[in-house]
Design a protein around this nucleic acid. Structure first.
Lengths: 205, 205
DNA sequence: TCACCCTTGTACATCATATCACAAATGTTT
DNA sequence: AAACATTTGTGATATGATGTACAAGGGTGA
């Protein structure tokens, strides 16, 4: 893979392509053209071709793309690992909903274990064991890089701990803005902000 | 407000500003400079000033911005309505988690009612009444514009119904890609895709 | 096998967004 | 009251993303 310099905007579209391709594969589609895929996901075919070109020459002229091998390339080259070990930090309402929500098995890996500071939450809710956050380093799975953060307070403090222990990517469901040094990537998912943005846009017509 | 032509990128940042400003206000901060706010939310001060300028001249030179009145302007001019009526479509695991998750009261409004097709779900879980989707038009609150979609199948079909009934903004928690005519705004929140994007980025170093 | 058709991959042009640099305007100090 | 230190708001510019156009090359059918 031509490392360095895949535009951010492109990186955000890769998951969309991958999702669509998996679906098409499931539907029995064996080959697809950028135009068709474009209709399917509402993205210009030319944008798709360019996005793909950052990974390499994946298609055949006059033919299109082979769905199965495209999925393989995405998985392999982009480093999607079905065994990617995820951890959950914060076992409240939302955390439990995510634990029960095993639809992502065989797509990005799974939540191996969870942590919380509330003793009532320690133990095994669903099939995922929940440990006390103070034992974080003890139970942090080997090779785990990505954490899902759903704590309700002390977010920054918790983040610092995670990073110190080698976590390099965090999905932040917290309402707080958190900071991290370069090299650590934070992606915030905030329902409230999403709804606000929607309202702003709706009112902007 | 200088209508039309607020860049999309700016619109995505307004909720961030608003959240930060509320927090600062809560902390007792009365005035703030673009530089400080920038440090707080990790956005260049110059970007912030330009973003604000689309709404008007909100600051004073050599002084900064008044936090309280800035919040008012955002609420007022951008049309955030604390009484914004939201509906939830799909009362499964995630849907219920959202219903119980009342942290957004007094920030964007609240979920007034929910809909589902599963008879077992009809009734009152938490404090939010759940109706059958077939009675959608009957129970859709007056003036409701925004729906949160957490159904597990027939997403597109459901979306079409919502739009037909006047919904103009949808927060999509579904795994499916959905389409909508111009004027209707869809914002997809997909944990799996978010994790994937994170993995792509982490591997891209 | 050959000729035609189709679709990719990319150079170039356009559009959108972020950053720089600074004049204008306000608060603060002497 | 005047001079100074700040910070805003905004033209001008640089960067980044998207869209257009087309040459290159593989697939298809006779």
């Amino acid at each position: 893979m031509k490392h360095n310099k895949v535009p951010k905007a492109t990186l955000q579209r890769y998951p969309i392509y991958l999702k669509a391709l998996r679906k098409l594969h499931h539907m029995g589609v064996e080959r697809i053209m950028s135009r068709e895929l474009g209709n399917f996901v509402d993205i210009e075919s030319t944008t798709i071709r360019r996005d793909f070109s950052f990974i390499g020459s994946l298609g055949k002229q006059g033919y299109g793309y082979d769905v199965a091998s495209l999925i393989d390339v995405f998985n392999g080259q982009l480093g999607v690992n079905f065994d990617e070990k995820l951890i959950l930090v914060g076992a409240g309402n939302l955390g439990r909903a995510l634990m029960n929500y095993n639809r992502w098995n065989h797509v990005v890996g799974e939540i191996v274990c969870a942590f919380d500071t509330d003793n009532d939450k320690i133990g095994s809710l669903s099939e995922v064991p929940v440990y006390h956050l103070r034992d974080f380093n003890q139970y942090l799975p080997e090779g785990c890089r990505i954490a899902i953060l759903t704590v309700s307070g002390n977010a920054q403090e918790t983040v610092d701990l995670l990073i110190e222990s080698g976590i390099v990517g965090i999905v932040n469901f917290t309402h707080e803005h958190i900071q991290a040094p370069k090299g650590v990537i934070i992606r915030t998912v905030d329902v409230v902000s999403t709804i606000q943005e929607l309202i702003f846009q709706v009112n902007n017509f």
